[in-house]
Amino acid sequence: MEAKDYWPNRQQWKEKNALQMKNTVIAKLVDVSKYYGNGAARVTALDRVNLSLCRGDIVVLVGLSGSGKSTLLHLLGCIDKQDKGNIIIDGIDTSSMSLEQLAPLRLNKIGFVFQSFNLIPVLTAYENVELPLLFKGLEKKAISERVHEVLDEVGLQDRKKHYPREMSGGQQQRVAIARALAGQPSIVLADEPTANLDSKTGEGILDLLLNLNQQKKSTLVISSHDSVVLDRIKSVVHILDGRVSVDTEHSPVQT
C-alpha cells in the first residue's frame, strides 16, 4: 500500500537529484592567490581568484603566455599549493592538506593532461593507462575492460603494446588523455594539450577531449594561449596577469 505511494516520490526525487547534480559545484576557488619568489623578485602568478566550476562544465582558460593559466590548473589539479585563499574540490577543502595528503584525491577525482604528454617511458600505452587504475585498487578484470574501452575511445586500440618512444606526439597525447579519463575523474584538466603538436593533430586532440567529455559529463578545463579553441567552446574564462574574468554572456561559470 505504502510502496505504491512511494514510487512516484522516488521518481521525483530522482529528477530533482539529476538537476542538482548538474548544478553541483565541483571545484571552487575562493580568493586564491599564488606568488613565486620572494621580496623584490616576487611574482604574483594568481591574484585573488574566485571561480566556481559545476559538474559537466566545459571551460577554456584563455590568456597570454605567462598570464597564470598553468598556475591555475596546477592549483585546481591539487599538484601545487596556493599561498592564499581556499580551494574546495568536490566538497573537500584542500587548503590545509599537503600535496602528499592530496594524492588520493588526485587519483580518484582528477585527470590531468600535460602539455608534454608525460607518459612513463618504460610502460606501454596499455600499461600507462592501466597505472592509475591499479593504484585505485580496481579488480584485474575491471581494469582490463576499462583500459580497452578507453583506448578504443581515443582510437588507439592497435597501439596497446607500443612504448611511448614508438608513438607520434599525437598518439602519445591520446594515451595521456586515455590515462586521464580511465579513472572517470570528476575534473579533467588539460594544460595547453596541443602546444607540442602541429595544428592538425592538435585539432584532433581537442575534438577528442570535447567529444569524450560530452559523453562523460565530467568537468573539463582546457587552457590555451591562442584563440583557436575559442569558437568551439561556449564558456570562456579569460585570464590576464593573474586576474580572472568570465565571459558573462553565456557562461555557467561564476567568479
Binding site: 589539479g77 599538484i79 600535496l99 602528499e100 594524492a103 588520493p104 584525491l105 588526485r106 587519483l107 580518484n108 582528477i110 590531468f112 600535460f114 608525460n118 607518459l119 612513463i120 617511458p121 597505472l131 592509475p132 593504484f135 590515462r179
Partner: peptide
Amino acid sequence: EIGTLKAIGIS
C-alpha cells in the same frame, strides 16, 4: 617521471 607519478595521485 616521478613528478608525473605523483601528479596522477600515486603516493
